[in-house]
Design a protein around this nucleic acid. Sequence first.
DNA 1: TATCCACAGGAAATCAGGGTGT
DNA 2: ACACCCTGATTTCCTGTGGATA
Length: 435
Amino acid sequence: MLNNNNHEHQFNIDKFYKNYLKGSKIFSNRDALDSSYIPEELPHRDSQIRYIAEKTACALLGDTPPNFLCYGMTGTGKTATIRYVSQKLAQQNSEIKPWWIYINCNIISTPYRILAHIYNTISRRDKIPPTGLPKDIIFKKLLGLLDLKVGHSICFLVLDEIDILVDRKGGNEILYDLTRLNENLDNCKTSLIGISNKLKFRANLDPRIISSLGEEHIVFPSYDANELRDILIERAKIAFQESVLKEEVIPLCAALAAKEHGDARKALQLLRKAGELAERDQNKIVSTKHVKKAQEDLENDHIMEYIKGMPLQAQLILTSIYLISRFSPEHIIISGDIYDVHSEIRGLIPGVRQLTKRRISDYINELSLAGIISAEIKSMGHYGRTKIIKFDIGLELLEKVLSEIEKINGIMNHKPVFLQTDKVKLKNNIFKKLI
DNA sequence: TATCCACAGGAAATCAGGGTGT
DNA sequence: ACACCCTGATTTCCTGTGGATA
C-alpha cells in the first residue's frame, strides 16, 4: 500500500521506474514466500507425507486408492503436502499417470460448479457452461468423460475446505454422489481426498459419506515456533538476496505466528510483508522493526480487504453501527436500532432495498464472525431480548475503510434522525442502567 | 410468580438473474 | 418462444426465551 502523505514531494515516476528496473535489492524470488509455492522439501511433515504417499501409491499400479481426510488448522501445510506428494507421484516412472483435480470448495462452492469444474479440467474441448444444465445430465456426461479420457487411470479429487461444502445445502448430496462415482464407472477409478480445518466437521456429515470418506484420516498438527523457523529459513534462502535479513527477523516472525496457532501461512506473510516494507523504505536490511510494522499492517490490510469485499448491504449495516456508536445519546448499540438506522440510511442511496429484521440479524452475525464486531445477547426483561454490540476493530480504521467506499462516503456524517427521537433517548437511558 | 417484550435464529418458500436445449 | 435449470439473496413463517415489571 502506498502512503498518501501530502507533505511528500511529488512522486517522481521516472526515477521510480528506473529503480524498479534495477531489480530488487531485498528479494531475489518473492514467490517463494507465497503459500502456494511448493518447496523442494517440506520440513516437519514427514509422517504426513509418508501417510499420503502410502495411501496414494497404489494408483501407480492401477488400483483404487482409498478415500481419506486431512485435518488441521489453517497454515499447517495440508494443501502444500498434498500438492507436494502429487507432484512427486507424477514424476514416477509408471505407465499410469493419475489425474489430480483440485477443488477449493470455498471458491467452487456449489454442487453444479464442482461437477462442471471436474468436467472442464479434464475435457479440453467441449466445456460445460457455467450454468443452465440440470445436474444429473452433467453427472452422466462426467461419467462418460471419465471413462473415456481418464481411461484406465486414476482420478484424484481433492476437496479443499470440504467443511464449508458440507454446511451448505446440497453439500452432502454432491459428496455422496462423488463417493459413489466408482460404482458407475467401467474403466477409470476415482479417489476422494478431503481437506478440512475443522476437526469436528464430521458431525454434519451424512453417515453414508462417513463410511466411505471419513474412516481414514490424518491430522496435521500446528507448527511450533522452532518448526516455523525451519520453514522460514528454507524459504528465505530462495526468496531473499544474500544476507539482507537481520538475524532476529526469522525467529520473530516464527514466534509471532506460533502465537496464532502456528500458522505457517501467517509466518510467511509476515516475512514477505517485512521485506516489502524494508524495500519501500529503501532499506538494505530487513530488521525486526519491519516485522513489527508488518504485523500491524497485515492485520489492518485483512480487515480493510474484508470490509471492502463485503456486499453493499453488509457495508451499510456496518455503517449503521458506526453511526449509532457515534451519534446515539448513550453510545449503546442494539440490534433494533441497527434496523431502524439502516432503514433510514439505505433510502439515501439509490437502488438499495429495505431489509427485514431477520436478514439484518444474519448480517450482524456475519460481522461478528468475521471479528469486526462482537455481539452479546442480553435480556432486558420487559424491554425484550437484544444484542449488545461492540467494535472489535479500531474506530480510525473503520472510518478510513468506510470513507474509501464510494457509495458510503457521502453518508459518513449523516446524523440519523431516528436516533434523536424521544423514544430512543428514553430507551437508551433505561438500558444504560441495565447494562 | 405470571407476564410479556423485542428480539434470536431455524426451515422453507420466493424472487431475480444468469443460463440451457428444443 | 418456451419450459426448465442452478444460485444467491432475501422474505415469510415460525417457535423460543431471559428476566424486569406488575
